[in-house]
Design a protein around this nucleic acid. Structure first.
Length: 732
RNA sequence: GCGCGUAUAGCUCAGUGGUAGAGCGCUGCAUUCACAUUGCAGAUGUCCGUGGUUCGAAUCCACGUACGCGCACCA
């Protein structure tokens, strides 16, 4: 720490500023200062609003979260530009994710969620989440984030739940929701269906069985589903099979002989396998579609438990995988197996969470019809009402919107917002009721039950911008200004936020979307536990300081997207923070060499008041030396102005890395290495003009640089301007 | 298969129609000086390949190759 110690008569001033910037000596203290002095909340001025992408409530900081720094940079930058920056944080209940974590927690105690009643389980998870939440905000504070924590919104807050249910009700009333037996990808392990986006496809080698099927031979990887076949399909243009189309053929199954209709459908690729497909509408999405087109019966062979149903006769109760091998074996025994292609590579739908194969099953689900709703989203994106940075995401968004299908929003889990749909057994109809009193009233009728499913998490978080602001703020703060978030949730989240916002408020939720990419290891490889390359940001922050960590996410980062987090880089940034600190130290040391000091004036105004002519200059210098110093000063001024101009452009265009690199280069290699060295002799021997110029440019640089490295800039600012001052009160 | 992007020093990446750049790493020198978390100097490159446009291409264009991402398909 730096202190001016007035000893004795007060004339001898001793400098006591550490030769090194030690982050831990400053960061906590500075953050507390910001927090207790209201710097987390907006000042007066034009509103600038960012809604923080809500992290999972029970999450703790991982490297990817570091990129929230971008949002903080914008908040600080705009504040320094005189705007009323408001950053509203929040937490997401993250339905499936969190329940998954909780179930692992239960498993450790030898329990499973099936041991609990619905309400008890919900309460337990709620407690679990409450106990584990808040940690991430503390870590965000370590990173210096200037968010208004008191306004934090949790996606299970009462008013949020109500709002989300309201949206559902409105969607139902407007005819955008339907309930249907529909084929979904179901994880039999996690016990829930997943949306298209949550599926992870993996390439895998599986045997492709060529089996005899009536007069045909056909290829399948899933012989065990044959008990659910309700047709055989060929391509209508396939001359080989034309004679069979529309006829029934007798098939010798494993259990008995049965008759199947042969249908013609464009879906069938005549070049694949034998050009003949068995149609199992209950267990294959494409077959399901074909089944719809041809009004085929749906026969469930696999249950939600992942085991074969009684339709499978002797195979009933077997798990899918076991059944497959047994069926294949038995087919072979009966001479129905033509050949097995063991080299067949295909991609398999797996659960993104647990990695197990998903079972396409038919399950009743609430669906949102997106055909009409997405039109306005496409239009808004095309018209740049929402702008994307980097630009490539606009195209990606539009491409995806084109193929966006109806969205199944029911999840068979407890942790989430329960769907406010009530079923009348006798009348066989559904009622949507969001009023709690009326819900109780309904449930008094023994023939009425509430749907046990909850909404897909993205159904609620997709409405994030609609329930984070206060009612009256919609006039002044909406659309919000900036949405900085991870690129991999572009489709999950960004698209839905725009959709819901346009649906309910007829406005886009934000003007700019900035997508940062994955934070990877030093080699650009994705961090993963299995790879063992996961970097814990907290350790880096403790070791090198928050500023260094933040800066390392910006320094030398290309537009390609991947951010390499390398300890070397963090260390280099720590060194840079130290450089900034030491420039301040140099200036303070020499503040007192300026001989123009007179007792009645504070040191601040003496040095910083440019109007002060410094009349008592006793410095003796040759004219040549003076001229040389003056020329250097002019050149510094010019160079600084140019740097500032480019900085402003970079910042407005969200080229954070470029802005940072430029300042880094200028501060270190021009300002410190060149200008200070050039003017050093003059300063030391008392040329106050040179001193003032250096200090003035330095202070301005601190302001420009503050959004990137908030702590060190504030720390030096306080050294120079006093403990109670803050760089956040300055304007660029 | 379709679309998008990337390819530059040992590593990670900037960059520009006219002499090839940074950080880290490496080599040498300096040091009572704000900073050794420092400074100065230095070495290191078929700027992915091929062809084209041009007075001139690492830069623009085409094709190819490799990698990354998105989408679709996957019986």
């Amino acid at each position: 720490m730096f202190r001016l110690k007035n000893q004795g008569g007060g004339d001898s001033i001793e400098l006591d500023m550490d030769t090194k910037f030690v982050p831990s000596d400053h960061e906590k203290k500075i953050y507390d200062f910001w927090e207790s002095n209201g710097y987390l909340r907006p000042t007066s001025g034009e509103p600038y609003t960012i809604l923080m992408p809500p992290p999972n409530a029970n999450a703790s900081l991982h490297a990817g979260h570091g990129m929230y720094t971008i949002d903080d940079i914008m908040i600080r930058f705009k504040r320094l530009n005189g705007m009323a920056s408001l950053w509203i944080p929040g937490l997401d209940h993250a339905g499936f994710e969190t329940q998954y974590v909780y179930e692992k927690h239960l498993a450790k105690q030898g329990k499973s969620r099936f041991d609990f009643e619905r309400d008890a389980l919900y309460k337990d998870i709620f407690k679990f989440v409450k106990e584990n939440s808040g940690l991430i905000f503390e870590q965000f504070k370590k990173l210096g984030f200037l968010a208004d924590w008191e306004r934090s919104v949790f996606t299970l807050d009462d008013r949020v739940v109500l709002f989300v249910q309201e949206t559902f009700k409105k969607l139902v009333e407007d005819g955008f929701v339907y309930r249907d037996e529909y084929i979904v990808n179901y994880c039999t392990h996690d016990g829930t269906s997943l949306a298209e986006l949550e599926i992870k496809y993996v390439e895998r080698k599986d045997p492709l069985y060529y089996i005899k099927y009536g007069p045909f031979t056909l290829a399948t990887v899933r012989p065990e589903t044959k008990f659910g076949d309700t047709a055989i399909a060929v391509n209508p243009k396939d001359s080989r099979y034309k004679q069979w189309v529309g006829k029934e053929v007798e098939v010798d199954g494993l259990l008995d002989k049965f008759k199947l209709k042969v249908i013609a459908d464009e879906y069938v690729n005549p070049d694949f396998g034998t050009g003949v497909v068995k149609v199992t509408p209950a267990h294959d999405p494409n077959d399901f579609e074909m089944g719809r087109r041809h009004s085929l019966e749906i026969k469930q062979v696999i249950g939600r438990d992942g085991r074969l149903t009684e339709i499978a006769g002797p195979y009933a109760g077997l798990k899918v995988r076991v059944a497959r091998e047994k069926v294949a074996h038995d087919l072979q025994d009966k001479g129905l197996m033509v050949k097995i292609d063991k080299e067949y590579v295909h991609s398999v739908a797996t659960c993104y969470k647990c990695g197990r194969d998903l079972e396409p099953l038919t399950i009743p689900n609430w669906y949102i019809k997106v055909e009409t709703l997405k039109k306005s989203v496409i239009e808004a994106v095309k018209k740049d009402e929402v702008k994307f940075t980097p630009k490539k995401y606009k195209k990606q968004m539009l491409d995806w919107l084109e193929v966006m299908h109806d969205w199944p929003i029911s999840r068979q889990i407890v942790w989430g917002i329960r769907i406010p749909a009530f079923y009348h057994k006798k009348e066989n109809k559904w009622t949507i009721e969001i009023d709690e009193e009326k819900q109780k009233e309904l449930l008094k009728n023994p023939d009425i039950t509430q749907d046990t499913d909850t909404f897909d998490t993205w159904f609620s978080s997709g409405q994030w911008p609609l329930f984070t602001l206060k009612e009256q703020e919609f006039k002044t703060h909406f659309p919000t200004d900036f949405m900085g978030t991870l690129s991999d949730i572009l489709k999950f989240w960004i698209s839905r936020m725009i959709l819901f916002s346009l649906y309910r408020y007829d406005k886009v939720p934000f003007k700019d979307v900035y997508l940062w990419s994955m934070v990877a290891d030093s080699k650009g490889k994705k961090m993963s536990k299995s790879r063992g390359n996961v970097v814990n940001p907290v350790e880096l922050i403790d070791k090198y300081g928050a500023d260094a960590f933040r800066a390392s996410l910006l320094f030398g980062v290309g537009q390609g997207g991947i951010v390499n987090l390398a300890e070397d880089k963090v260390r280099a940034m720590r060194n840079f923070a130290n450089k900034i600190w030491n420039v301040g130290r140099f200036l303070l040391t020499n503040r007192d060499s300026a001989p123009s000091r007179h007792s009645g004036e504070s040191s601040d105004s003496r040095i910083l008041n440019k109007k002060d002519p410094g009349p008592r200059q006793t410095w003796q210098a040759s004219k040549a030396e003076l001229d040389s110093a003056r020329m250097t000063i002019e050149s510094l001024q010019k160079e600084y102005n140019e740097v500032k101009k480019q900085y402003m452009t970079d910042m407005e265009q969200y080229r954070f890395s470029t802005a940072f690199d430029r300042l880094y280069e200028f501060i270190w290699h021009r300002f410190a290495d060149y200008y200070i060295e050039e003017l050093k002799d003059a300063v030391i021997s008392g040329n106050i003009e040179a001193y003032r110029e250096l200090e003035s440019v330095y202070l301005n640089l601190l302001i420009l640089f503050h959004p990137f490295m908030p702590f060190v800039t504030e720390a030096v600012w306080k050294e120079i301007k006093g403990e109670e001052s803050s760089i956040l009160n300055e304007r660029i």
